[in-house]
Design a protein around this nucleic acid. Structure first.
Lengths: 164, 164
DNA sequence: CGTTGACCTCAAGTAAACTTGAGGAAATAG
DNA sequence: CTATTTCCTCAAGTTTACTTGAGGTCAACG
């Protein structure tokens, strides 16, 4: 592998795709291209038609990855990022809106998983996953507020003995 | 839609695909077929080559859905279910092993998301998502133990100012 | 017995998020 | 200057988890 110029800061507004962004952000070039087609990041071109990203792409990619870790699909991330003004540099307030939005979705996912864990704990404790006569058999006690799908699901688990 | 015989319990060991399983479990027939090809559920056939599931399929489907809610891929669920003895009816201990395994994966996912949320909170609080000079700038303080990927990611977010 | 409605099989399509490959041009080490 | 590298475009492939469709069968109502 040819070594890239160490710490030679190009005009500070232009860095190349692989050489800098991919390496520094840890994503493949193909992914950067892909993100670009999805409108998640943008790039300019040099004389030879090669992409020149500005440094903020690094942060964008980082933010995309963070959002993905919250379980958010790219399409939604794209729309969130699109809400950032393209003309001006994003402000602290802009980012705050983004992160709060993501925090909310994170919270709800955490809550869902936590509830599921608790349900599972209950089932492990009383053996209702395998036996039909669980003391927690009243689904509403166990399920609390959740979608119909979930209630129906757990109700099934708790009450429908497929074997014993 | 033809109405199915209400509460007419077939030989107790055999119910039809759509009429009972799909309706009672809330999944589409096509999904049941799909699960069958993946070895997640099994079925017998009647004289006319139509599937006849036994009642435990209801529980299997319920368990599959629960596992999916933990974020577990079908392949893993399949291998977990495959660990159940095919010959005998699963015991309470069998199910306990399954649910404990899933509980563990659930826990880790919850932990991951929680940590992410806390990081995000920190960033929201200090504005470091948008500004380069965050008091939490020392990545190790913020990140604690996590994979290299994550560290690199967050380190990037915290230290690499793409704009300010 | 005939006509629906429920099933069957197998192939193909879908969506998300990327990766891989082919064919060709630009940038750079030596 | 030339051999590597790196990059470009565009098409097609990959995985997961299913759904849809075509063409044909089975079963039950009337």
């Amino acid at each position: 592998m040819k070594k890239l110029p160490e710490r030679v800061w190009l005009p500070r507004s232009a860095i190349s795709a692989w050489g800098e962004v991919a390496r520094r952000s840890g994503v493949a070039v193909s992914t950067l291209h892909f993100y670009e087609t999805k409108g998640l990041i943008h790039s300019g071109r040099n004389a030879g038609n090669q992409r020149r990203y500005t440094r903020d792409v690094l942060r964008r990619v980082a933010v995309i990855k963070i959002a993905q870790r919250t379980g958010m699909p790219l399409a939604e991330i794209a729309s969130a990022l699109a809400a950032l003004p393209e003309s001006r540099t994003p402000t602290a307030a802009d980012w705050r809106r983004l992160s709060e939005r993501w925090r909310a979705s994170l919270e709800s996912r955490i809550a869902q998983l936590t509830q599921l864990r608790d349900q599972l704990d209950g089932c492990i404790g009383c053996g209702c996953l395998s036996l039909g006569q669980c003391p927690l058999r009243n689904p509403d006690d166990v399920l609390g507020r959740e979608g119909k799908g979930a209630r129906r699901l757990a109700a099934m688990v708790l009450s429908d003995s497929g074997f014993e």
